[in-house]
């Protein structure tokens, strides 16, 4: 299956392990990702906070270029997913805005008719490729591994359409298809604080602490995420959270694509698993490396 791939800025930078794991698993899954040519930043939450029309216009530039290929756009980043989708919704719902976006694009020699569907990589992998196919490709089983799915906010809200905003199950089913045990916990769609980690560190750290605590108390060995910002907050800040709240979290935070890669039997190094801030624990390593014969 072929898609137009929109990586987004973080996936090429602080989330480069996400990028590497996607590149590693795509061929095995039969996923053809053709990168959108000369894409620009979606604008994220930050641009929207200072300029609205500009934010919509730069976001629409990507969609306008994508329209030439007439395929679904798929992005691995929850923030890009929300922003690009929101641009589509506003473009359809507010004629005045549509007119202005159209004029701005025209100045750059582009046009957009509003017909491109934007999807998250999780949706594409779970619903287009499907759980059965993923399970059938698995060379390793993750028996004994307890995984807490962390959805965060922007994949299921405001208008995802592929899962429930409060009780999503897409990732739960994926974890089970991979042969691991899915840990259910209340905070799976809670907010990690996102960019507040930069501006209001204390508040964001507290949100993450509660989240880690909930996952830990429910017996999770690791957390699996689908968003660069969530991963960064939970992984890179975990040490600081421990120091601040006198907790002893040692919970690796993986991307869902890394977990898929492990079951496909790919080398851990190709999946960027050596480059997590919170390193894989010994029992996890044993499951990841030893399950080869499973």
């Amino acid at each position: 299956m072929k898609y137009t791939y929109y990586p987004g800025c973080s996936v090429n930078a602080t989330a480069n392990i996400y990028r590497d794991s996607i590149a590693a698993i795509a061929p095995a899954l039969g996923l053809e990702l053709e990168e959108l040519e000369d894409w620009n930043c979606c604008g994220a939450t930050a641009y929207m906070s200072v300029k609205e029309l500009m934010s919509f216009a730069i976001s629409a530039r990507n969609l306008a270029i994508a329209e030439k290929h007439n395929r679904d756009v798929v992005t691995p980043c929850s923030a890009c997913y929300t922003v690009l989708n929101k641009t589509n919704h506003y473009f359809a719902d507010y004629p005045e805005l549509r007119r202005k976006i159209g004029q701005a694009l025209e100045a750059g020699g582009l046009s957009y008719s509003g017909n491109i569907r934007v999807r998250h990589l999780l949706d594409v992998i779970c619903n287009d490729i499907g759980y059965d196919k993923i399970a059938s490709l698995a060379k390793k089983k993750l028996a004994g591994l307890k995984v807490a799915p962390y959805y965060g906010c922007q994949i299921v809200r405001p208008d995802s359409g592929f899962d429930d905003p409060d009780e999503p199950t897409t990732m739960n089913r994926l974890i089970e298809a991979l042969g691991a045990e899915c840990v259910d916990y209340r905070m799976k769609t809670a907010c990690c604080g996102a960019s507040l980690m930069g501006t209001q560190e204390e508040l964001a750290m507290r949100l993450c602490k509660n989240l880690l605590l909930d996952a830990q108390q429910n017996g999770a060995h690791c957390i699996v995420t689908i968003c660069p910002l969530c991963q960064m907050n939970l992984d890179v800040y975990q040490g600081k959270i421990n120091a601040r709240y006198k907790t002893k979290f040692d919970i690796p935070v993986l991307y869902f694509t890394q977990l898929i890669g492990v079951t496909l039997g790919l080398p851990l190094r190709d999946l960027g698993l050596g480059r997590l801030a919170v390193k894989l624990t010994k029992p996890m390593k044993r499951i990841f490396e030893g399950a080869n014969n499973g």
Partner: peptide, 15 residues
């Protein structure tokens, strides 16, 4: 191209 788009938005004025 991006700058042309941004310039046009400036002209149109924010919403």
């Amino acid at each position: 191209q991006l700058k042309k788009i941004l310039r046009k938005v400036d002209e149109l004025g924010e919403i």
